[in-house]
Write a protein that binds this DNA or RNA. Structure first.
Lengths: 143, 143
DNA sequence: CTCTAGATGCAAATCATTTGCAATAATACT
DNA sequence: AGTATTATTGCAAATGATTTGCATCTAGAG
């Protein structure tokens, strides 16, 4: 039997955050999402519930607490995904339609360890691995 | 004996670009750089030679031609590096002082091939791999 | 040397994101 | 439950990176 994820509510409480509508709504949205969402997409979907500034502030709070992770999949805008979604750590991005597809491929731990030792860094906290290309759908549509 | 890199001049001519002062200057700057430079840094260093808008336009042109590569190493601003610097394809970024250090670690070709086949993508054109952490210098300076 | 498409400077526009401030609501405490 | 305390929100204005309109200029073809 699969262990169910903590509800948005418990997630917020566990991290000592006040429980508010937007926080619940954003966490829930990201829990349901199969790929990261841009801040703008999230703000747009929350229009009825909260102001854009509030969405950005909420995303920042959730990121600071480690509940969600901020990604730079597009040059100019940030994307967000639930942190505890290990299989979605990396992505393939279609540079035409901007579709994001999670991939499971990751670096070997050995490689990462080697990196930690070799370089002038004491703590390598995270890494980002993204692929950019054209999805089949777009490939067909483009001349 | 090491094969010398093409001069900025030839690089521009080879790609059918008009030769102008800023183009020469920016390509030369990136040839000398040991790590990527942000657009803002580049614009600042070019202040005497050209307007900020012109720098951005030049960086775009050079990127379109494939002479330089645009990177998203920081959340909010773009960085640029010469494309033909294979050993500098990936980086470790200190999230405190924003120092960028090139690394040689890369993905196994086998992994990339597997990715190409497994996913809904026809052409995976590029990938980005960056590590984020704290460099020793900052680690010492921070409480 | 002249002509023309492309390149540049300057100022204003745009886009994503942040911030100041007064009003409001979520928890802690009685 | 009722209230005090402090974080959270909405709104408008600010910010910072990057882009664009337009008139002017210049590299390179002929």
């Amino acid at each position: 039997m699969k262990k169910s994820l903590p509800t948005a509510l418990t997630l917020l409480r566990t991290h000592g955050l006040k429980v508010t509508n937007i926080r619940i709504a954003i966490v829930t949205l990201l829990q349901k999402a199969t790929a990261p969402r841009t801040a703008e997409e999230i703000a747009r979907q929350m229009r009825r519930i909260a102001d854009t500034a509030t969405c950005y502030r909420t995303l920042r709070t959730l990121t600071d607490k480690g509940i969600v992770t901020k990604l730079s999949l597009f040059e100019d805008k940030a994307s967000f995904a639930l942190t505890d979604t290990p299989s979605h750590a990396h992505y393939v991005v279609c540079t035409h339609c901007q579709t994001i597809e999670p991939i499971t491929l990751c670096l070997k731990n050995a490689d990462i360890q080697a990196l930690h030792k070799a370089k002038k860094f004491t703590a390598v906290r995270s890494h980002a691995l993204s692929f950019f290309g054209t999805c089949k759908k777009c490939a067909r549509a483009i001349p």
